[in-house]
Design a protein around this nucleic acid. Structure first.
Length: 193
DNA sequence: ACATGGATGCTT
DNA sequence: AGCATCCATGTC
């Protein structure tokens, strides 16, 4: 388990790159569902027009982003799905890393059951797919990844080749939409389409 | 290419 | 209290 506070207190961009290759573990009814993080995006806070905290916006939903790195920011999108972020950086610097895709590692059968799908390739290759597969919803809002328990990180694989690109689906972000703040393991088949 | 879906956070 | 928006997905 990755417990060191210093790991989570890094800035969003650094943390987004370092999370590639780490394992995300979800403990559920004694099972340990595990996936390797293969795709992330950095959301850089008050100066990032793509961020939920652009301009220092602080609401009931986004308040957790102002807390210390290592907590979980879950929000509902399009009324249907959930998205998972890891809060980055020090208290009152509202940056986060959006987890976009996993490679399934352990308890794959349980993940298929949670998604009610059997296709391995489409099990966790998208931000809300992985939330379904790991049963991540807003009951985990603000959960501390350093605590261990329901949701935590583990050291996984050292990834040799990491690619970057603009972030997905942030057309509203004006000049910040072109920043190369999406990272993924080059060639990994579980990166989202 | 398009329907889905509802909380969130705007504006009035 | 009304309304446009949204860090997707599945099926068309």
């Amino acid at each position: 388990m990755i417990k060191a506070k210093s790991f989570y207190l890094q800035d969003g961009l650094t943390l987004a790159k370092k999370l590639i290759g780490k394992y995300l573990v979800r403990k559920l009814n004694g099972h340990e569902l595990k996936g390797k993080i293969v795709e992330t995006e950095a959301y850089m806070g008050i100066n990032d027009k793509g961020s939920h905290t652009y301009g220092g916006k602080r609401t009931e939903r986004t308040k957790i982003l102002y807390a210390e790195g290592g907590l979980v920011y879950v929000y509902r999108i399009y009324g249907i799905y959930f998205c998972l972020n890891v809060v980055a950086n020090h208290k009152s610097i509202p940056q986060a890393v959006f987890i976009r895709a996993l490679e399934p590692i352990d308890e794959i059968a349980t993940m298929k059951q949670n998604r009610n799908k059997t296709d391995l390739k489409n099990l966790t290759n998208g931000p809300s797919k992985l939330c379904q597969a790991l049963k991540i919803d807003n009951t985990l809002y603000g959960y501390d990844l350093r605590k261990g328990g329901k949701l935590y990180l583990e050291n996984g694989e050292r990834i040799k080749n990491i690619s970057s690109s603009p972030r997905i689906n942030i057309d509203y972000a004006e000049e910040d939409k072109d920043n190369l703040w999406r990272f993924y393991e080059t060639g990994n088949p579980y990166v989202s389409g």
